[in-house]
Amino acid sequence: MYFYQIFVLSKKIINLFFSNILLLFGIVVLHFVQLINFRNVYNNFVGEYSGVLTGLCQTIILDGQDKVDPLNFYSSTILVQLIFICGIIAASFVCYDKEKNTLTRMLVAPVRKAQILIGYLLGFVFSIMIISGIYIIISTVVLGVYWGNSLYNLILINIICTVLSVSLSLLLSTFFNNTKLAAGVMSILLIIMSFLSGSVTATVQYSKTSNFTLLKWAFEAYVNNMEDRLLSESFINITIMCSLSIVFLILSSLFFWRRSIYDN
């Protein structure tokens, strides 16, 4: 019964997540178009300034990233953004449940709050993994992006990054009862993190600040995998992402419990 209820909750989340298939399609396409755009800009740049290309590109765009192809580097940036944008959708689903009283209805059923949280987590992680998987496959097949030679490591990093995104969403959604407000706050947070993480700007300027962004640790892990480094070289990134996920999940459950509802 315990696992059946978790399964039911996760399945419902997956159904709801994919109920607006146009939105999800739009999000994936948008990110993919961004990637194609970058490739075109980069290629034009190559044609125009072939003599000074390398130095210019590395200084302005890549800031010394010399091992990874700029397209691959940018792909990982976009993937991390995609995962966190899907996190915004996840947060808005949780707020929807609060706003529409369906969470209250779940709580009057013989379901424990831990089951609801686990159900949310599994449902969202599965859904976002599917979305990010589609992005990875399309970018590999269409644009030839190289994600590294270890598929297992890529899947592991993807799972950890997705769990981090979902746990942050769950935490933020405990503070808000309004779907639009939750999505707005999460979007602003994502924009700030993207800007400071160094994944879309020169890292020198924000090198220290970037350490405080989630995106930096996530996209670095992907880049390491693209460079065919051992997983142990991403140990710090993985540890930080896992630790933060655990902290976020603990805090989410604490705030969830705080509603002074029985849970015997």
């Binding site: 159904n15 709801l16 109920s19 607006n20 529409k100 009283n101 369906t102 209805r105 009057v108």
Partner: peptide, 12 residues
């Protein structure tokens, strides 16, 4: 429990 406010999913 039949709550005062509607508690249903509109999209399913």
């Amino acid at each position: 429990v039949i709550p005062q406010d509607l508690a249903i999913y509109e999209n399913i």
